[in-house]
Design a protein around this nucleic acid. Structure first.
Length: 801
RNA sequence: GGGGAUGUGGUGGAACUGGUAGACACGCUUGGCUUAGAACCAAGUGCCGCAAGGCGUGGGGGUUCGACUCCCUCCAUCCCUACCA
C-alpha cells in the first residue's frame, strides 16, 4: 500500500532543491530566449486570489517554455510607491518605507511558498533610489528631447486638510477624511508630451499580438478623429472663438456655443459679472474624474456674448457649460441640438433653438446618424460626407476654418502632491525651474522623522530649501512613471553603472506580458510610449515593449474586483497550508479560463485536491520498467495510446495557443479516468504496463507546469533514466492519433436522430445508405420524401424532408 | 455619459472554424465499505413527462438544412474613464 500524499514536506523539499540548484536564475546563452513577465504587484500587505491567478498563469507558461528548451527569464519585483503606504502610515503610525518593506517581505514569502519559478536575483523595488535614480535621468533626457513642459491643471483640493486628493479619495464630492466639500483648483504641474506619439501609438497597434479588445480600447482612447476647426468671430470685437467638430455637415444647425468654465473668456467675464462668477464657483464643486463630469447634471449660463455664424452671419449666443472640458480640443463646443444628444439635452433645458439640418429615415430629434442635408442653403440635398468636404472648402476660402485631425489623447500629467513617490529632479531659482545636474542625482526622498506623518514635500523645509534662494521641486512622480519602464530594467537590474546593458538587448522585447484587464489602457499605453521615447533617445531598441499580451479577467468578490482598497480580498495562505501550493495552483487554473472574470468561490478546491491525491496513488510506489515497445497492441491498448497522444497534442495547443488551462486539465483528468483498472494490477501484461507507463510519463510532464512539486517528486521516484522532469517535453505521434473510424451524427431536419460508427474509407453514398437504415432515422423520415441531403465529411449527415 | 467585455444545469465551466449543448469538476441522491464518521468505491443527476416524446444556452425578433456561435433589438452584471494600482 502506498504512503499518503503529504504536500507540505514534498513542497518544502522541492523548493529547497530549486533554491540550492539556482535552477531559475537565468543567464544569457545561445538558446532561443523567452521573456515571460507578469505585472509586478503593489505591495499591499498580503497576496490575494487575483495575484495567485495572475502569477500562476505566468509560471505555467514559463515552466512549459522551459521544458520546450527555451531560455526563460521570469523576474519579479515591486511597484512600491503609492498612496496606500501613506494611508497606512496615517492609520497605523508606521513609516511608508517600513510598511512597504514589511509587506514586501510577507508577499515574497507567499510567492515563494507557491513555487513560482522567478529569478529573484533580478528583484526590483521602485522605491529604491537605485531604481528611481534612473527614472530621474530618463525624465531629464525627456526634457532635453523637448517632451516635458509645465502647465496649469486641475486637481481635487480639500480645503480643510489642505491637500490634493486622488479621485478615489473624493466620495460624493466630499473629502474622505475631512468630509469637506472638494473644490477644483488649478496648479502648475509637469506634463509629458505623449501626444507627440499619438499617431505612432495608434499605427503600431496593428503589429501587436494582443487581444483585439485591448487594441480596440487603446485605439478608442487615442481617439483619432477627422473634422474641421471652425472660427466664430465674437460680435462687436476683433476676437474669435475656435471650435473643433467632427460633423461640419451640421454647421447650419449650430444654435449656441458652449465654453468651458475654465476658459480664459469665462474667467475674464466673471470679473465683472456676479452671476457668472457665482456660476463658476458652483462649477468648482465638482470632481475631476471624467465619469463624474459626464454623469453630472448639465448646467449652463448665458454670457450675453454673441458670435457670428461663419456661413449664415446669424448671431449665436455663447454659453458657459459645466460639461465642456478645457483640456480636450479648444475648450469650446459648437452646439448642434438637432443632431447631438448632449446638445439636445442642454438646448431643451435652456430653451435654445433646435434646428434639423440632416434628414434620415428617423423622425425624432436628435438624429445622430449621417444623412442628407436640409435647411442648409446651397448644401441642401447633399450627403453628409459630400457636404462636410464642401463646407470645409468654403470655410477655408472664407479664412474661417480648416481641415483638422484631432486626438482624444491628452498629455500626461506626472506631478503628484504626495510624499511617497519618486522626487521630481528639478530646482527653482526665482520660480524658474531647472533640471538638477546629473551629479546630484539621485534626488533622494527624505526619510521621515519618527512618528511624523507623511506630509507632502512642500512642507519639508529641510528638503526644499537648499539655500542661495534655490528651492527643490516638492512634487513626486505619478507611480505610472515607475511602472512604465521596469520591464526593461529587470534585464539589467544588477547593473549599478548603466541603466541598460547588453543583456537588455538579449532579453527584450517581453515575449509574453500577463496582467489584469484593468490595465488595458493607462499602464499599457504609458509603457508603450516610454519604450518609443527611450528608443528615440537611443536607450532601447525596437518599437514595442510587449510582443504578446494576455489579459486576465478580474477575480471578483461580492460582485467587485478583489483589491486591498476595497477590503474584499481572500488570502491564499489558509488554502496553501491546508491543501498545498500545487492544489491551489491547480484549482486556480481549473476553475475558469484566464481571460474571463471570476467570482471567487472555493466550491471545487476539494476536487483539485482529490485529483492530485488520485495521481499520487496511481504513480507513487510504481516504477517505470524499460520495455521493448514492439508489441502487438490490442484494440483497447491502442485506444489508450491514442488517448495519451491526442491528449498531449491538445494540451500543447491549449498551453501555447489558447492559454486555456482549464480545458487542458480536464483533458488530463479524462486521460487518467480512461485507464482500465486491470492495467494497474500486478498481473497486467507487459503491453498493458507499457501503455500505462506512457500515460504516467505524459501526465506528469503535462501537469508539471501547473503542479510542479508533486510532479517532480513523483517523477524522481518513477523514472530512472531522465533525472529532471523539466529537461524535456514529450512528443506525440500523429500516426497513433489517427483513427480508422469516426462517429457519424445522423440528423433529420437538423435534429439528431442517431449516431453510428463508420469506417473513414467509405464513400458518401454508402454512408448515406447505412444512415437511412438506422431505426430511429427511418422512423422519423417515414413516408416523407427527402428533399435534400447535407453531408459534412467525417462528421454528420442531415436529411431534410 | 463614453469605451470594452460577459450572460449556458443547483455551482465553476466545456462545445477551438455555423454541425452531437452540458466535456471535466463541485454539489446532491442512492448503494457499498465502516461500530460510527472521515476517506474511498459504484450508479444516477438540464427541465417537463409513467413513457413515447417535447422543451432548453439572459429576453424578443431574424438569417440558415442546421445557431451557445452570425445579424438586429432590449435587459442585467463587471472593468476602464487620465490622481487606486
Amino acid at each position: 500500500m502506498s504512503s499518503a500524499y503529504k504536500h507540505k514536506s514534498i513542497e518544502e523539499a522541492i523548493q529547497k532543491r530549486w533554491h540550492k540548484e539556482e535552477r531559475y536564475v537565468s543567464k544569457v546563452d545561445d538558446r532561443e530566449k523567452y521573456y515571460c513577465l507578469s505585472m509586478f504587484p503593489y505591495p499591499s500587505g498580503k497576496l490575494h486570489m487575483g495575484h495567485v491567478r495572475n502569477y500562476t498563469i505566468g509560471d505555467v507558461i514559463s515552466r512549459y517554455k522551459r521544458m520546450q528548451n527555451f531560455n526563460v527569464f521570469q523576474p519579479m519585483g515591486w511597484d512600491a510607491f503609492g498612496l496606500p503606504a501613506e494611508n497606512a502610515a496615517i492609520a497605523n503610525k508606521v513609516s511608508p518605507s517600513d510598511w512597504t518593506s514589511q509587506n514586501i517581505e510577507n508577499m515574497k514569502t507567499q510567492l515563494k511558498s507557491l513555487g513560482f519559478s522567478y529569478d529573484w536575483s533580478k528583484e526590483l523595488r521602485t522605491c529604491d533610489s537605485n531604481y528611481y535614480k534612473w527614472e530621474q535621468l530618463i525624465f531629464k533626457k525627456f526634457y532635453d528631447a523637448g517632451l516635458v513642459y509645465r502647465k496649469k491643471s486641475l486637481v481635487n483640493w480639500d480645503p480643510v486638510d489642505e491637500t490634493v486628493l486622488a479621485n478615489e479619495q473624493v466620495i460624493d464630492g466630499k473629502g474622505w477624511r475631512s468630509g469637506a466639500q472638494i473644490e477644483l483648483k488649478e496648479i502648475d504641474q509637469w506634463f509629458i508630451k505623449i501626444t507627440d506619439y499619438a499617431e505612432e501609438l495608434l499605427d503600431s497597434l496593428d503589429n501587436l499580438d494582443w487581444p483585439e479588445n485591448v487594441k480596440l480600447m487603446q485605439k478608442n482612447w487615442i481617439g483619432k478623429s477627422y473634422g474641421a476647426e471652425i472660427k466664430y468671430k465674437i460680435d462687436g470685437q476683433d476676437k474669435y472663438l475656435t471650435t473643433f467638430s467632427t460633423r461640419p455637415d451640421t454647421i447650419f444647425g449650430v444654435s449656441f456655443l458652449a465654453i468651458s468654465p475654465n476658459h480664459s473668456l469665462s474667467i475674464e467675464l466673471s470679473e465683472n459679472d456676479k452671476n457668472i462668477s457665482e456660476f463658476l464657483e458652483k462649477c468648482k464643486e465638482a470632481k475631476a474624474a471624467e465619469a463624474d463630469i459626464a454623469k453630472a447634471e448639465k448646467l449652463g449660463i448665458d454670457t450675453n456674448i454673441k458670435v457670428v455664424h461663419p456661413l449664415t452671419d446669424k448671431k449665436i449666443p455663447v454659453w458657459i457649460g459645466n460639461f465642456v472640458l478645457l483640456d480636450y480640443g479648444t475648450g469650446v463646443v459648437m452646439g448642434v441640438p438637432g443632431h447631438d444628444t448632449r446638445d439636445y439635452e442642454f438646448a431643451s433645458k435652456y430653451g435654445l433653438e433646435i434646428n434639423q439640418v440632416i434628414e434620415t429615415d428617423s423622425t425624432e430629434l436628435p438624429i445622430i446618424d449621417k444623412g442628407v442635408l436640409v435647411n442648409s442653403g446651397k448644401f441642401d440635398g447633399m450627403s453628409s460626407e459630400e457636404a462636410s468636404q464642401k463646407i470645409i472648402k468654403e470655410l477655408i476660402e472664407l479664412d474661417k476654418g480648416k481641415e483638422l485631425i484631432q486626438f482624444r489623447l491628452r498629455d500626461w500629467g506626472v506631478s503628484r502632491q504626495r510624499y511617497w513617490g519618486c522626487p521630481i529632479p528639478v530646482i527653482y531659482e526665482e520660480s524658474l525651474p531647472k533640471m538638477v545636474n546629473d551629479k546630484d542625482i539621485p534626488v533622494e526622498l527624505p526619510k521621515l522623522t519618527r512618528n511624523s506623518l507623511p506630509t507632502p514635500l512642500n512642507q519639508n523645509e529641510d528638503f526644499i530649501n537648499i539655500g542661495n534662494n534655490l528651492f527643490r521641486e516638492s512634487d513626486t512622480f505619478d507611480t505610472f512613471m515607475d511602472s512604465s519602464w521596469y520591464y526593461a530594467r529587470f534585464t539589467s537590474a544588477d547593473n549599478d553603472n548603466e541603466i541598460f546593458d547588453e543583456n537588455t538587448n538579449y532579453w527584450l522585447p517581453v515575449d509574453l506580458y500577463i496582467g489584469g484587464i484593468e490595465h488595458a489602457i493607462l499602464h499599457l499605453l504609458y509603457s508603450r510610449f516610454f519604450h518609443k521615447a527611450l528608443r528615440d533617445i537611443g536607450l532601447l531598441d525596437g518599437d514595442e515593449p510587449f510582443k504578446r499580451l494576455l489579459t486576465q479577467g478580474m477575480v471578483l468578490k461580492d460582485g467587485a474586483k478583489m483589491s486591498k482598497s476595497k477590503g474584499n480580498t481572500v488570502d491564499p495562505q489558509p488554502y496553501i497550508e491546508k491543501y498545498g501550493a500545487d492544489t491551489v495552483r491547480l484549482y486556480m487554473m481549473f476553475t475558469s479560463p484566464p481571460e474571463q472574470s471570476l467570482e471567487w468561490s472555493e466550491s471545487s478546491v476539494e476536487g483539485a485536491a482529490r485529483f492530485l491525491k488520485k495521481l499520487w496513488n496511481l504513480v507513487n510506489d510504481r516504477q517505470n520498467i524499460e520495455l521493448n515497445n514492439k508489441f502487438d497492441f490490442s484494440k483497447d491498448e491502442l485506444e489508450l495510446r491514442r488517448k495519451s497522444h491526442s491528449t498531449l497534442k491538445k494540451v500543447e495547443h491549449d498551453y501555447e495557443v489558447r492559454f486555456s488551462f482549464n480545458t487542458a486539465i480536464a483533458a488530463i483528468m479524462e486521460l487518467l479516468n480512461s485507464i482500465p483498472e486491470s492495467y494497474k494490477e500486478e498481473k497486467a501484461t507487459d503491453s498493458q504496463k507499457f501503455c500505462l507507463n506512457e500515460v504516467i510519463v505524459f501526465s506528469l510532464k503535462m501537469l508539471s507546469p501547473i503542479a510542479p512539486h508533486i510532479c517532480e517528486h513523483l517523477w524522481n521516484n518513477f523514472q530512472t533514466n531522465e533525472s529532471c522532469i523539466e529537461s524535456s517535453w514529450p512528443k506525440f505521434d500523429e500516426d497513433i492519433i489517427e483513427s480508422e473510424e469516426f462517429e457519424l451524427i445522423i440528423q433529420v431536419n437538423g435534429k439528431v436522430r442517431g449516431k453510428i460508427n463508420i469506417d473513414k474509407n467509405l464513400e458518401e453514398e454508402e454512408i448515406k445508405n447505412i444512415a437511412l437504415e438506422v431505426d430511429n432515422v427511418s422512423n422519423n423520415i417515414g413516408e416523407n420524401q427527402i428533399k435534400k441531403v447535407i453531408y459534412v465529411k467525417d462528421k454528420l449527415i442531415n436529411f431534410v424532408i
